[in-house]
Structure formats: structure tokens, C-alpha cells
Design a protein around this nucleic acid. Structure first.
Lengths: 189, 189
DNA sequence: TGGAAACGATAACAAATGTTTAGATTTTCA
DNA sequence: TGAAAATCTAAACATTTGTTATCGTTTCCA
């Protein structure tokens, strides 16, 4: 649990004792490539912290088509955070794209943290704000940039993604078809 | 300042004395229809709470086209929150769509709240989480729904919008042209 | 309150994007 | 390691969406 300790210490003032108390409620799990870490239709009860590997967040539309909402990388927290907070059935699938090791934080641990960590609320605020900024950027780019421009700058957000993720999943993330992405790459802007 | 008091009391445990201290640092401003409340290229130093009226959040692309990112309604907090937090020059314009009265919360008041209100951090967390959920929904819908479906359900998020906002601004929010929206409305799904 | 500007529908045409199919190459994993 | 599956490009065609222009109607505000 060394990685998550470092990340938490970089975000808030927290003692070793507090960290012990918090992480004592967590456990480590490993998922194989393409395994589902979380599935739709049940209320999410866990938040994950990625030690190693990579997670893809997927939503399915009515026609059954998969759309890639997000990629989560090492040292990041990930969950269907929206449904977790609202205690609603999830719409997302969390899928391991590689052999992936995560720290599992159950809801009870999160609630314990808000109640007992001196800066627990601040930690929650910072994580929410981090994802708010990420999403705000996404939405901004969706309006103000073309798919080609978003493709060309994708490594700013997901470094090394081209070596870790097949191109059709990047197309899915960009909201276009794989065929169209193949065309865009070839195009002279 | 009665409205913002009620909203804050509904979010956190806060005493009248704390509210007095916090709101003593705020002031009320009124903007005329189509006036700019905040402009791009300077670091946002204020967060607004809408007493009366309506605010449109706009981003401009390289070609100078306007895109409507968001509509903010009565009893909501609004700002270029992303740039406010990062202390970066804003990319957004905040425009009053009607005569609009706001409570202005300067950065110093926000920082004072985090430091001195017993549940100031929690208040910050709840606001960030509220907007996170809103954005998550937007992104989800962008992937899993057509523009027509998003148009048909827009009043779930912005009640009464059709009586308050011209259709071409709704098209702009949906990310399509006004001509195309006019076509979609007529189409039999 | 009256003239100017904004607004929304529509049509014709252009451009962007999706769909389907095929084929060559690479990757996976039993 | 070798057969099966996945991946990427390409082309032809279909569909969706954007662009431009026009024309009544409504709204705005000096």
C-alpha cells in the first residue's frame, strides 16, 4: 500500500496513524486482462486506487454499443463515482485493460475517512475537484476542438496511451468510429 | 441574502454567526440582459450565486464561434470554477440572459470559509460533487444519446428553458446548428 | 410605438461521418 | 508454437449534419 500512502500524503496533512487506520480497512485485488472490475445495475460500494495496470470505463447505449468514457491509470482513484455518491445503480462497466492491481476502498472506509480523518473532507473535496477539472476540460474540448485535434492531444491526458490501448478504443473515447479515426490520421489538416 | 442562507443551511451544519461572518464578505450586484458578468483571459476572482435571472456560460473556439457550455439558474453557484481553482486565466464568458441579480463571493471569502467555517471543506466538497454529477451525466448522454434525445430531455436539467432561452442557444448547448435542431424537432423519430 | 434586429422554418447543396465489406498483418492464449 | 481472433487500412456507398440563402414573424429598445 506504499503508493496510495504517498498519494494521500501529497494531498492532505495526514499522520501515519491515520493512514494505518484508513488503509487497514482496504484490501488488494488483482484482475486479469479484460476482466470486469465493476458491472452495471448494482449500486457501487467500492472505490479503487490503481497500483499497477489500467482500467477502461464503459457505458452501453440502448442499441448495445459500447462507448469508452474514460481511461484510468496508475496512482489514480477510479469508480462510478457519480452513482457511488448517489447510491444509485451503476451504468458503467470498469474493465481491466491489462493485468491490474487495485487497492479496494469499501464505502465504509470512505465514510470512516470523512468522519475520522482530520482532513478527510478536504481529501474528498480535492478528488472531486480533480475530476471536475478533468471533465470541464473534456466538455470544453468537445465544443471547441475537432476530433482530429482531440486525437492529436490525447497523450497530454493519457501519456503512452498509443502503446497500451488499441486504436479502436481511442476512437470510441473520441466519440467516432474506428474507420473514421483511421481516415483522420491520414488526413493532412 | 436570504436565498443563499437557505441554500447553505440545507447543505451543511452552519450557525447564524458563521453565516453572518461569511456573507459579510459578499456583495450584491445586478447585471442587465446580455451584459458580461465575467470575461476570458483574466484569472477568475469571484464565485456567483444567482438570486434572480439566468446566466449562460460561453466558450469561443479558434474560429471565433460561440459555444454554449452551460445555463445557470436561480439558487445555483456559478463561475469558471475550473480556472478559479487553478488560478488560471479563464476561457469562459459568463453572460446574463435576463436582468440578473447575483451574490458575489470574492476568493478571499471562499478561502475564509475553508479556514473558519466548521464545515467549510464539506461545503466545498458538496459543490464540487454536485457539478461532478452534472458533468458526468452530460458526458454520459453525449456518448449514449442522440442530439434529438438530448433535446427532448433538456427540461429535466433546465426546467422552463423553452420559455426563457432562444432556440439557437439550445442548439448551441446541444452542439448542433440551429438549422439542424429545427430539422430534428420536425422529424418523426 | 415603429423601425431594426433577432428569430425560426425551409430548401438546395456541400461536407463530414457512418456502414459494410474485404484483405493483409499482428496479437493472443490454449 | 500455431490456429483463431483481433486489429488496422482502404474503398464504395449511405446517411447525417453543416452551410448559405430566403422569407415571414416576433421581439427589442431608442
Amino acid at each position: 500500500m506504499e503508493q496510495i500512502r504517498q498519494v494521500m500524503k501529497s494531498m492532505i496533512n495526514i499522520s501515519e496513524e491515520e493512514l494505518d487506520g484508513f488503509l487497514g480497512q482496504a484490501m488488494i485485488k488483482t484482475f486479469k486482462r479484460l476482466a470486469s472490475i465493476s458491472r452495471p445495475n448494482k449500486v457501487p460500494q467500492e472505490i479503487y486506487f490503481i497500483n499497477q495496470g489500467m482500467i477502461r470505463v464503459i457505458v452501453n447505449d440502448q442499441k448495445g454499443n459500447e462507448h469508452t468514457i474514460h481511461f484510468a491509470l496508475e496512482n489514480q482513484f477510479i469508480a462510478d463515482y457519480s452513482c457511488f455518491m448517489q447510491k444509485q445503480p451503476s451504468l458503467y462497466t470498469l474493465q481491466a485493460l491489462e493485468t491490474t492491481e487495485v487497492v479496494v476502498l469499501p464505502r465504509s472506509a470512505i465514510e470512516w475517512g470523512y468522519a475520522h480523518l482530520k482532513e478527510g473532507q478536504k481529501m474528498g473535496r480535492l478528488i472531486a475537484e480533480f475530476y471536475f477539472i478533468y471533465q470541464d476540460n473534456r466538455i470544453k474540448n468537445q465544443y471547441a476542438r475537432t476530433a482530429k485535434q482531440r486525437y492529436d492531444s490525447i497523450t497530454e491526458v493519457f501519456p503512452n496511451i498509443h502503446n497500451r490501448v488499441p486504436q479502436h478504443m481511442i476512437a470510441s473515447y473520441l466519440g467516432i468510429t474506428p474507420v473514421h479515426l483511421s481516415r483522420l490520421k491520414k488526413a493532412i489538416d
